[in-house]
């Protein structure tokens, strides 16, 4: 865990890396999330100040996009596609079995902090559904056994 000074230094570095961009807020938020696994609360006013935005504006942006988390996720992130092409191949059934196996619903994290289950709407794997993404790795024609990959 970083102390607040380290956190602020690291965020300042990220801001400096992106400040020359036109419209740098999303790249900065992506980089902050990549560094910390979520957008830590103190990052919001710091980014706002650096970009001459208000903290409300940054907060509004963070909460608009489903990729940005305000709290850390579980150790593994399991994303299952819920979109039509995957539905046509039984995605709902697979999701139901996975939810039952993990004992959680969408957007929830298992009690042991191991897995966070997220819906995703299309991974572009529509001709080999149901599709999933396990910690960034793509899985086509997935079934409930995909859970085994995150049981470590």
């Amino acid at each position: 865990m970083l102390d607040s000074a380290d956190l602020s230094d690291r965020i300042a570095e990220i801001i400096a890396d992106h400040q020359g961009l036109e419209g740098p807020l999303l790249p900065i938020l992506h980089a902050v999330q990549a560094a910390f696994g979520h957008i830590p609360q103190p990052a919001v006013p710091q980014i706002a100040n650096a970009l001459t935005l208000s903290k409300a504006e940054v907060h509004g942006v963070v909460t608009f996009y489903h990729d940005f988390r305000e709290a850390p996720a579980g150790r593994h992130i399991l994303k299952l596609c819920r979109a039509e092409a995957c539905q046509a191949m039984g995605a709902d059934r697979v999701a139901g079995a996975i939810k039952a196996a993990l004992g959680i619903d969408w957007h929830e994290t298992t009690a042991d902090g191991r897995v966070t289950l997220e819906p995703v709407f299309c991974l572009g794997l529509c001709a080999c559904g149901p599709a999933a993404m396990v910690d960034g790795r793509l899985v086509g024609r997935c079934d409930a056994s995909v859970v085994l990959e995150v049981s470590a």
Binding site: L26, P27, Y65, D67, F68, F121
Partner: peptide, 20 residues
């Protein structure tokens, strides 16, 4: 890179997103 918003495929929301 987008951040998880289908609506950003609409051109004006995409521009807003690009602007941060």
């Amino acid at each position: 890179v987008g951040a998880g918003a289908y609506v950003c495929g609409e051109e004006t929301s995409l521009l807003n997103s690009l602007e941060g």
